[in-house]
Simulated assay, not measured.
Amino acid sequence: MQITVRFTPTAIAAIGERAAAERLTIAGFIGDAALAAARSTDPLARAERDPRRPLAEAVDRMAGELNAAVATVRDSGDGPAREAALALLPDLAERTYTVLDAVLEAA
């Protein structure tokens, strides 16, 4: 049986690093981890209960917003879309610093 799941780029990077450390493929690592979680009775082992998860998701969202704004600036020529994206960058940068400060405090 084949199952498809989706992960954020941040999650994929973390999973890939751990899988490599365990000398497993990402799919093999995910399969082993899912089976271990299914057999576990410890509710704290659940990923959504990880206190770092909101920070990882916030970093992922900020990266997506920054990438979208930069792509718009790069690809839209000198039109109004470019100007609107440029106007967003200072706020996005400030929000990025706030998220990174939270990550550093949690570390």
Rank of each mutant, 00 (worst) to 15 (best):
residue 42 D to K: 00
residue 101 D to C: 08
residue 45 A to S: 01
residue 23 R to G: 07
residue 44 L to R: 15
residue 46 R to I: 15
residue 70 V to D: 03
residue 87 A to Y: 04
residue 33 A to M: 09
residue 76 S to Y: 13
residue 93 A to D: 15
residue 36 A to R: 00
residue 31 G to D: 13
residue 38 A to F: 13
residue 20 A to P: 07
residue 69 A to R: 11
residue 63 A to C: 14
residue 71 A to N: 12
residue 6 R to H: 05
residue 57 E to Q: 14
residue 82 R to P: 10
residue 82 R to S: 11
residue 73 V to M: 08
residue 52 R to E: 15
residue 99 V to F: 07
residue 107 A to C: 08
residue 17 E to F: 14
residue 26 I to K: 01
residue 5 V to I: 00
residue 106 A to C: 02
residue 74 R to P: 11
residue 73 V to A: 08
residue 101 D to W: 02
residue 104 L to N: 01
residue 73 V to Y: 00
residue 79 G to C: 07
residue 104 L to Y: 13
residue 89 L to T: 05
residue 27 A to M: 00
residue 54 P to I: 11
residue 64 G to F: 07
residue 43 P to C: 00
residue 35 L to W: 14
residue 40 S to T: 00
residue 7 F to I: 00
residue 62 M to N: 03
residue 105 E to P: 00
residue 86 L to P: 10
residue 84 A to N: 08
residue 93 A to H: 15
residue 13 A to V: 14
residue 62 M to R: 01
residue 107 A to Q: 09
residue 49 R to G: 09
residue 8 T to N: 05
residue 58 A to M: 00
residue 48 E to A: 14
residue 82 R to I: 07
residue 99 V to N: 02
residue 63 A to G: 15
residue 94 E to F: 13
residue 10 T to C: 10
residue 90 P to L: 03
residue 78 D to F: 13
residue 8 T to L: 12
residue 42 D to T: 10
residue 67 N to G: 01
residue 11 A to D: 07
residue 63 A to Q: 14
residue 99 V to P: 09
residue 93 A to Q: 15
residue 20 A to D: 11
residue 89 L to P: 06
residue 80 P to G: 14
residue 48 E to S: 14
residue 18 R to V: 06
residue 36 A to P: 02
residue 6 R to C: 12
residue 38 A to R: 14
residue 79 G to H: 01
residue 73 V to W: 04
residue 33 A to G: 09
residue 78 D to I: 05
residue 9 P to D: 10
residue 60 D to W: 09
residue 88 L to S: 05
residue 6 R to D: 11
residue 66 L to I: 03
residue 70 V to A: 11
residue 13 A to C: 05
residue 97 Y to T: 12
residue 98 T to Q: 08
residue 18 R to L: 00
residue 51 P to N: 01
residue 79 G to V: 00
residue 59 V to L: 00
residue 87 A to D: 01
residue 107 A to N: 07
residue 42 D to N: 10
residue 65 E to V: 08
residue 107 A to S: 01
residue 67 N to F: 15
